[in-house]
Write a protein that binds this DNA or RNA. Structure first.
Lengths: 132, 132
DNA sequence: ATCAATTGCGTTATGCTATAACGTGTGCGA
DNA sequence: TCGCACACGTTATAGCATAACGCAATTGAT
């Protein structure tokens, strides 16, 4: 899928996320955009829905937060499963793709005749800088 | 870790989960236990915390729900990463362990000097029965 | 030109998920 | 018997997400 022109709200949300050094929750994004006229959570969630659909933003299920994709120029939907390492100290996120893991999981799903639609692979822990 | 004797509340919550055919949210569990005297979410969450700690229950981050471990007799903490396939139609969950995926992810984390603590691998889609 | 369908937007209200903070009771070892 | 750890109960609150309404702009077919 090619990413269409972003609307005003979508751009605002996307910019906040690309500038952030860590994942942001929807309500944090809302607070950061109050000066630009945002008043309600739905304004954020609607923009996020589209950005997720376009594959330029990821949702981190385990921390109810969102990050800009680390590979903004490609289509994230095309490189299969995405894994994230999330530092619980500094919040930094490392994004990661691996064909081997991909195939292995996909083969197993196939053996179960399970039709995969969305995937979540998230590892929480401490990054090199923050590890004790 | 060997699982200690469960308290009354922990047993009630665990029983509900083992009898359920699909993952349950904390509030659904609460509703099912009102007749046994449960009144507040914390009663459920506190029991769940312990059950998670003992490794007899898993939390499914992507759907904010909980399931009894499919391998009740072993210690789930000991067989490394756990993956789940979650059917979005019937709610059924298939639990899955794979050393290959394990090693691959762990090697990558090691290469990043990332200390993993908790992991989440969840695939949403449709099971063999529910697939169109 | 006009009508219908689609899409984005704004607002209010609500529902679902999770935890803080306080106090009670019980058992157990120093 | 004192102190500590732990489970428990309750009230209140915080944090995350969506339902339902209505308006405006765009597009595209008739």
């Amino acid at each position: 899928m090619t990413t269409p022109m972003l609307t005003k709200n979508q751009s605002l949300v996307f910019d906040i996320l690309t500038k952030a050094e860590a994942p942001l929750s929807a309500y944090t994004i809302l607070d950061k955009l109050r000066d630009q006229g945002f008043r309600a959570p739905l304004q954020v969630y609607r923009a996020l829905d589209k950005l997720l659909e376009y594959g330029v933003v990821h949702r981190l299920e385990s921390i109810n937060s969102f990050v800009a994709c680390a590979h903004p120029h490609e289509d994230c939907h095309s490189h299969g499963l995405v894994a994230f390492a999330i530092c619980e100290s500094c919040g930094q996120v490392i994004e990661f793709h691996d064909d081997e893991v991909d195939h292995r999981l996909m083969d197993w799903l196939k053996s179960q005749k399970f039709k995969a639609e969305k995937s979540t692979i998230e590892i929480r822990g401490h990054c090199a800088n923050c590890a004790a």
